[in-house]
Computed example of a mutant assay.
Amino acid sequence: MGRVSGRSCIVTGAAQGIGRAIGEALLDEGADVCFADINADKVAEVAKANADRARAAGGKVTHAAVNVTDRAQVRAMIAHAAVTFGKVDVVFNNAGVNKPMNFMDVTEDNWRFIMDINGLGVLIGMQEAARQMIAQGSGGKIVNTASIASRQGFDNVAPYCASKWAVVSLTQSGARDLAKHDITVTGFAPGVVATEMWEEVDRDLMSIGASERPGQAMEEFSADILKGRVAQPVDITGTTTFLASRDSDYMTGQIVMIDGGMTLV
C-alpha cells in the first residue's frame, strides 16, 4: 500500500514541470490522479503516458483542460474527477505563471496576467475544491504552490512575488475557515527548480537586460543555496506526497519551504 492509496487527487498546471512530477509521484504511491492544465493537448499526452504507471500502483489516471481563472471550467474539472474517481480527496492548486519585467516597467497588463492566474486562480481552486469536499462530507486536503518569492521581493519579478505572497495569505485564510469541515489547507514553497518555466524565465530576464547569457539567472539565483545545487522536480515530490497523505493530517495553514536552504525564515 502506498502513502496515498485510495485517495483521489487533482493537480493543476500538470502538463509539465513540478505539476507533472507531483502527479506522477502520487500515482507511484497508489493515488487516482487527474492531471489538469490549460494546454489540453499536452496534458492529455501526459495522462496517456502515465496509464501504465497508474495501473502498476493500483490507481487510475485522467485529465482535464482548465483555465484556473474561469470558475465554470474549474467546477467542470472537479466534477469530472469526482465522477471518474467517485470522490475528490486532495486538490493541488499548482498552476502558475511568471513574466519578468524590471520594477519600473511593470504594466497593468503584466500585473493582472500574473495575479489573475497565481492569485485568483488559487482562490477559485480552493473554493470549488472545498465545495466538493463539503458536499462529500468526508473532509479533504487543499495544497497550494507558493515560492521563495512569497518570503521576499525581487526587483524584476514584483508581480510574481506579490502573487505568491497572496498564496500564503489565502492558505492561512482558507485553513481558518475550512477547519470546521475537516479540510486542511497547506502549501509548499519551492526555490530554484530546473523546469521549463525556469527556462522561460531565463529567456525573459535576458530580454529585459537583467542577465547577459543563458543560464546566468539560474546561477545567480542559486548561488546561496546551502545544498549547493538547484532542485529537480523529484526533490519537491517527497514533500508534496506527504502533504497529500494522512501523515500530514494535523497540519494546516502552513507553508513548507523546499528550497535547499536558500531562504532561512
Rank of each mutant, 00 (worst) to 15 (best):
A81F: 05
A149S: 14
G174C: 11
V91W: 08
A14H: 00
Q136E: 13
M126S: 10
G2K: 06
G215N: 00
G19R: 01
G23H: 09
M218W: 03
R112Q: 09
R7K: 15
S138C: 05
F103R: 04
T252M: 07
I225E: 09
R7D: 06
V201G: 01
W165V: 05
G209F: 03
F92E: 11
S248P: 09
T184R: 10
F221A: 15
D182I: 04
M101V: 02
S163E: 14
D202Y: 03
D116N: 15
K42Y: 01
G23M: 09
R3F: 12
R20W: 03
G215R: 01
A244D: 06
I142R: 04
Q132A: 14
V46S: 09
G17P: 00
A72D: 14
G140R: 03
L26W: 01
V88A: 08
K42E: 10
E196K: 11
S138A: 14
R55M: 07
E196P: 06
V90K: 03
L243D: 11
G215W: 00
V122A: 15
K87H: 14
N118R: 02
A158H: 05
G187N: 00
Q136W: 06
Q16T: 09
A82Y: 03
N102S: 13
A72W: 01
I255H: 08
E220W: 10
L243N: 07
T84S: 12
V66D: 08
V74I: 11
A158D: 00
E212T: 13
L26C: 01
A217R: 00
N50C: 15
D177S: 12
D41A: 14
C9E: 09
T145A: 15
R55N: 13
H80S: 14
A129I: 11
A179L: 07
A175L: 12
A95H: 09
V193A: 13
A14F: 00
G174H: 02
T12E: 06
A14S: 11
F113K: 12
V90E: 12
G23P: 01
